[in-house]
Simulated scan of single mutants.
Amino acid sequence: MKTLWILLLCGGVIALFWYRRKVAETARLHAQRQAEQLGVQFVSVACKQWRLAILSNGKLGIRSRFMFEFSSDGETLYEGELWMENERLRKADIPPHRI
């Protein structure tokens, strides 16, 4: 019985890891789309915060915040934020930048 619980725990940790990777890839796509809409160069994206939470639809999921960097002139970097619930973009915060 102990072995079964260990296998279930390991399986859960592995599933959580893969799902977090899927959310991170989706965040990268959202950040690239934001950069395309703004007409700026996308540089990078990083997860700033994540946690398991009850989402706005009432289900358990991952609520995360991603920072992404972009450049409008090739020299200056700006940081935007993406708030996500699972793979869904809830809010994007884009700072003022030069065009």
Rank of each mutant, 00 (worst) to 15 (best):
E79M: 03
R63H: 10
S72I: 00
G61C: 06
I6S: 14
D73V: 04
K59W: 11
V13Y: 07
W18R: 04
L52F: 11
L60S: 13
G74M: 09
L55C: 05
M67T: 05
V43E: 08
A35Y: 00
S44D: 15
V45T: 11
Y78P: 02
E25S: 11
I99D: 09
V45P: 03
I14E: 11
A46Q: 14
K91Y: 03
L60E: 11
H97A: 08
N57T: 14
L29Y: 09
S56Q: 14
K91G: 02
N86F: 00
I14Q: 10
R63E: 12
I94N: 05
Q41Y: 02
S56I: 07
P95R: 03
E79N: 12
A53P: 01
R51V: 07
R63T: 07
A92C: 12
L9C: 09
A46K: 14
Q34I: 03
V40K: 08
V13M: 15
W83T: 10
S64H: 08
K2I: 04
F17T: 10
G39M: 11
K91R: 15
G12Y: 07
I94Y: 01
K48S: 08
I62C: 12
G58K: 06
A92Y: 04
S71A: 11
G12H: 04
K59M: 10
K22G: 04
V45G: 04
L52H: 06
E36Q: 14
R90P: 00
N57I: 11
